[in-house]
């Protein structure tokens, strides 16, 4: 049986909230391993990425992820697409570090021994073992972002969507997060204002007023975006 193509397809997708077009009709096919999304605040970036795992339903049009249709296959899409939110404080749900990493696996009702083994392994890999039983609130901003990422990685998603993953980080943690993201084998879709993070990406989309207004390589898209911002009062 042929495997479905690994792609995210937007077919005439539109989002209207309270009578306002947040995302104008959009058709797009995303097949690359590293995709960036840039644009001014309020341009529709967050709405766009929330469509990918069904957090936001489209007002019109169809979305499919590797052959799975939304909203019909929402649960399967969620297992395939991990989502890292901008503010890790809102993503960390359980009181302690180990418990929070285990949250998604508990939702899948994995056996306790498997959960313990996988949580232990991922904490060791990302240096969180010393904080296993610590309350999440005592972690630094960088550690919280790492914890949020580990909570997603443990689910072994094929695609990870990240909403401004370095916005709240200092330079050291920003560099660490950028290096970590480069090593991840998953397909990544990243919304960012940090242009350096897009180095080596395959494709960068520029959004403005609910539309994709440019689609190119990182250097092309960044130059386009900078010119756009310069031209604005």
């Amino acid at each position: 049986m042929p495997q479905p193509e690994k792609s995210i397809i937007f077919d005439k997708v539109e989002v209207v909230i309270d009578g306002q077009a947040v995302l104008r009709p959009l058709s797009l096919r995303l097949t690359e391993r590293r995709i960036g999304l840039i644009g001014a605040n309020g341009s529709g970036k967050s709405s766009f990425i929330r469509l990918i795992n069904g957090l936001l339903p489209p007002s019109a049009g169809h979305i499919s992820v590797d052959g799975l249709a939304l909203p019909r296959d929402k649960a399967a899409v969620r297992r395939k697409v991990g989502f890292v939110f901008q503010n890790p404080d809102m993503q960390i749900i359980q009181p302690t570090v180990a418990e929070d990493i285990a949250f998604g696996l508990h939702n899948l009702r994995r056996p306790k021994a498997e959960i313990a083994a996988r949580v232990g392994a991922i904490m060791a890999e990302y240096g969180l073992t010393p904080f296993a039983d610590s309350p999440a609130r005592i972690l630094s901003g960088g550690q919280k972002q790492l914890l949020a990422l580990c909570g997603v990685l443990i689910m072994q998603p094929e695609i990870i969507v990240l909403d401004e993953p370095t916005t709240q980080l200092d330079l050291r943690h920003k560099n660490r997060m950028a290096n970590l993201l480069r090593t991840l084998p998953q397909r990544l879709i990243i919304v960012t204002h940090d242009m350096a993070l897009l180095a080596g990406f395959d494709r960068v989309l520029v959004m403005d007023k609910g539309q994709i207004i440019y689609d190119g390589t990182p250097p092309q898209s960044i130059v386009f975006y900078e010119e756009l911002i310069k031209a604005r009062p």
Binding site: F85, Q91, I93, N107, L108, G151
Partner: peptide, 16 residues
């Protein structure tokens, strides 16, 4: 925000 995070981590799928 928290409700979205819980949803993104598959809690509602289990409920279904």
């Amino acid at each position: 925000d928290i409700a979205q995070a819980i949803e993104a981590r598959g809690f509602d799928d289990e409920e279904r």
